[in-house]
Amino acid sequence: MAASLQSANPILSSRTLASPNRSSFAQFRSPFLRFDSASASSNFKPLVSREASSSFVARSAAEPQERKTFHGLCYVVGDNIDTDQIIPAEFLTLVPSNPDEYEKLGSYALVGLPAAYKERFVQPGEMKTKYSIIIGGENFGCGSSREHAPVCLGAAGAKAVVAQSYARIFFRNSVATGEIYPLDSEVRVCDECKTGDVATVELREGDSILINHTTGKEYKLKPIGDAGPVIDAGGIFAYARKAGMIPSAAA
């Protein structure tokens, strides 16, 4: 889907991003290396305002290009994390388009992971996760077409998944709903990061990166392409309205 949204797409290719200003990135990134998120957060406006969480999204107002940074704790999983582990089928009675049930779905995010995962993604009794970045291996989100999967991750307050590869429907649902950024790593990051590591994801045109501040390592991410603006907007409908492809809000 990442590729699909990049090239011949008549709808989604209308927008071109200005190239990033490299020198400003250095300044931009440095605060995360020194300050904790609480002190840094005062400098940046949250992009996604529908829920508060330990993570935040920053955007440089001075820059015309889209550039987003997610900073927070990592939650690390392995290969083939299927939709039953992301949101077990018994919770599919919750209807995501219903706001109360949307919130509740978040509280069950990744509850299907086996007991070998000692740290829970969402603590029992909590509605939100303290982890803003999920790091996975191959084929993240395989299995069912349930949109509840990307929705519950977004509802829990996570901002991005960084995995080696994605199952097709999960990727598409992530973009269509705008709930979470499904980012591709070039290497097997899940073997080099641990749950609880402090990390930053910087989305930039061409060379997005993941920085693990705990280990001090930096990883290249594949470009999100034209799927990025769709997620920025909050999903395919919001994007289409914003881009004037469909009329704004129907009665």
């Binding site: 709808i11 429907i169 269509a176 999903g235 395919i236």
Partner: peptide, 17 residues
């Protein structure tokens, strides 16, 4: 197979990308 959002779009338009 598709997700709810894509299906919501199809319900309204009969089309999908």
């Amino acid at each position: 197979g598709i997700g709810n959002t894509d299906a919501g779009f199809v319900l309204g338009t009969g089309k999908i990308l």
